[in-house]
Write a protein that binds this DNA or RNA. Structure first.
Lengths: 461, 461
DNA sequence: AGATTTGTAAATCCACATTTA
DNA sequence: GTAAATGTGGATTTACAAATC
């Protein structure tokens, strides 16, 4: 029976007991979900403590625990022992970033890949089509890649420091697809994966879909803090970790070698599975002075290394390479068959030909030049100050003061699209606010300039 | 404390209490998983009842419930109230069927698609490459299909009885990919999906991976029984249903219109989500006299209709169409972005061109002829007796007496690959045994003949 | 047909860990 | 540094539903 009066402790949410039906925890969870999606409970709102709500509803407090748990698994709320339970920053909306339905004039949101280089690809397509083995690319054979394609893949990745045999590489349909495969193959619903506090928003969505919990870890200028990771591992049972060491999305941080080693030690000690998304390897390996090796090299038996060709070579041909050790091999292959059955050999053949002919390297050279130009333009409008921020990043991370995420809507009205840092938040909100500015999507450098001009004007108002 | 002596009630499994550590239910589940994967507990073995094992281990019986539950969610065991808990037929191995690592001489296992027609595709590829808009196919735009591609898709499906607008169709990377997307988008771990007792083995694996429970429903000669479905819906909370009405895999059953209507009524009443895998539409719609319509037509707001082009047009170009109502739209799009980001526009463009040029219809005509020939050859060796079995099916369902699933291994030694019915079992085992014989994968009709000859000899021994 | 066996699932109990004040 | 606030998670209690005999 309710004992206290709650009038002087106003609870943020007072559900009507009358509405609740008998699996109370389900009924309560459904009600809470409704309140959040309808906007009655705004992101960041503190929910009543479990015991208090239990008292109010005259239920056992662990029944509330279960109701909260259901919503937490769906990514609607998050709980911190000692502090309370809060509505998630991204509870209400999908934060997946794609190019679907972009009505905007200048896109600084989605990170494309300087599509100007695609003309170079069409020539190669013509060459592939002229070859006499085209028909052999049209059947169900070699679902994870034809041997000569895998050979080219390993050839390509050798310059990034990857060296494995063909049994430990598989070709899949793009880096996003590789992430989905990794998540499905190696984790179960309810598992926990450590990520940067700000991380790739499509990874957050993927985790939400598969009901995998993200554990945000604080970073310094060298990327994720190894001590913080260690602390979280000791506190709770963590199964995996997601990193983009060559150029973290969205922060542009490059993890230096000493930090890779610190992190690797913690990962080894706690037997985490590392998803190393290295789509930016082509911008970093052999270019940035400090670069030594991918983390795969430090933890070959517990890492999935993902090397997509969308950013580096051609975005429309959906091709990525997955590299893994023996222990993970079977699980990954299974997931590939379950999700793709096979990847189009035709697309892979074109990428293969681009690599073998050396044209892929030409494309990369050109993309790097474009990235340099775009970053130069950006620096005319905003300072590139981040220590350890990648100098050639396809996007920048711009601190903004006091703008809520309705800034996206307002920029949209000015004809530009950019994304607020809330979208990239894997856990609780912070007082710092940023915009991620894609430099690689505007249709020309002039458009980029115009977009940045508009943005600067808007922020200076 | 243990009270009874169990000597005269020999329990199939007596775990050592000493080994168990403190989360008992996890420890026990891990132990059980080990025993099963190591083969100490064979498929079909009855496990001790929950209360009996609890007594033996001196634990509360619901702790055993939880341990069993963990293994059940992983597809290792299944439980039937009143009868007990049993080791699953496919507990130990992956039953995914792919073309990876086929060392066999004659493949009657994997169902390919009479790849002889692929020469016709290469011409079209050349034509697509000659067009001047190739470059527009190489960027991130239109992730679910370019408008003219969707138009061609709807055009193609119109002859199967599908009629929707472009906002309700998406193009993805093959039918298997469409299934994975449907499962991820529309169901959560722990949900239940009704399937035929014998169903597509890759669907079983997909369910296992996503921890979705399959509820097997008995069939008669017209396919799944509507009464049985109704009964199971009343008994337990079922969220979805998976059907292949045009030609069920592996049984070759075509669901006649009256049965589609009966099933639709139950599905509507219980608000199930229907996954209608109609990759065989091209063999059935307009060909089989009784054919009226896909089930999507009967349940447009609660169905995902999947139309793959791998079997009908070309297997190596990974293209499938997904059709859905308004209610499911947003969830499906989200899952597509999460899993694929986008599907290769180049592959889709080739399929589009094949459809628009009329060549796709030529290919279908040829594939149907090949299927006719292959079925004729089959009938020289084995009777095609199944009432309502599809006359042009790319595979046949051969009853065999008393052969366990080690027959696969033995056939392999004779140089042929075929799959035992255990692989297709979504639930408890039955006394009836079958082989699924693929007619569309042998490299020539002569090879097919030889394979069937070997098979017949083996079975007559 | 009714008692028994067996599995299901919600709610509660309880011990404990972390954070905050 | 200690007490209070708050969340976590395993085990137990309890009611019930289905199948078997």
């Amino acid at each position: 029976m309710p004992v206290n009066s709650f009038d002087h402790y106003p609870m943020s949410w007072k559900p009507d007991k009358q509405i609740l039906k008998r699996p109370y925890y389900q009924s309560l969870a459904a009600l809470l979900e409704q309140e959040i999606t309808n906007g009655f409970l705004a992101p960041g709102t503190k929910l009543p403590p479990q015991r208090e709500l239990a008292d109010f509803l005259d239920l056992n407090f662990t029944t509330i625990t279960r109701a909260y748990k259901v919503c937490e698994e769906r990514g609607l709320i998050y709980a911190v022992t000692g502090s309370g339970t809060f509505v998630s920053a991204n509870a209400t909306r999908s934060i997946t970033i794609s190019t679907d339905q972009v009505a905007t004039n200048i896109d600084l949101g989605f990170v494309a890949s300087f599509e100007q280089t695609n003309a170079m690809v069409t020539e190669t397509i013509e060459e592939v089509v002229k070859k006499n083995y085209l028909e052999q690319l049209l059947n169900y054979n070699d679902p994870t890649g034809i041997p000569h394609q895998k050979k080219a893949a390993l050839n390509w990745m050798a310059s990034f420091g990857i060296s494995v045999d063909q049994d430990h590489v598989a070709i899949v349909s793009g880096a996003q697809n590789a992430l989905a495969i990794s998540m499905s193959a190696l984790f179960e619903p309810g598992n926990r994966i450590a990520t940067d506090l700000y991380t790739y928003s499509n990874f957050i969505e993927l985790a939400k879909m598969y009901q995998i919990q993200l554990v945000p870890i604080i970073s310094d200028t060298y990327g994720m803090s190894a001590e913080e990771l260690e602390k979280q591992c000791n506190k709770t049972n963590i199964h995996g970790i997601f990193l983009m060491p060559s150029c973290s999305n969205p922060t542009t941080i490059m993890i230096p070698d000493f930090r890779k080693r610190e992190l690797a030690e913690v990962i080894r000690k706690h037997r985490l599975i590392l998803i190393e998304d290295d789509i930016h390897a082509f911008l970093t390996a052999g270019i940035i002075p400090d670069y030594q090796q991918p983390m795969f090299h430090l933890l070959p038996e517990q890492t999935v290394y993902i090397c997509g060709t969308g950013k580096s070579i051609c975005s429309g041909l959906r091709v990525a390479y997955m590299v893994y050790g023996d222990v993970l091999r079977e699980k990954i292959l299974r997931a590939i068959f379950n999700i793709n059955l096979k990847t189009s050999s035709l697309d892979v053949e074109i990428i293969t030909e681009l690599i073998l002919s050396g044209k892929a390297h030409e494309i990369i050279t050109q993309k790097k030049q474009l990235a340099q130009t775009a970053n130069d333009i950006y620096s005319e409008y905003f300072p590139i100050s981040e220590t350890n921020g990648h100098p050639l990043s396809f996007y920048r991370w711009l601190p903004i003061q006091g703008h809520g995420n309705q800034i996206e809507q307002q920029l949209e009205e000015h004809g530009i699209r950019a994304f607020h840092s809330d979208r990239f938040l894997s856990g609780q909100t912070t007082p710092d606010k940023y915009l991620r500015i894609a430099l690689s999507s505007a249709k020309s450098m002039d458009k980029l300039r115009i977009g940045l001009q508009i943005l600067k004007q808007y922020l200076n108002q």
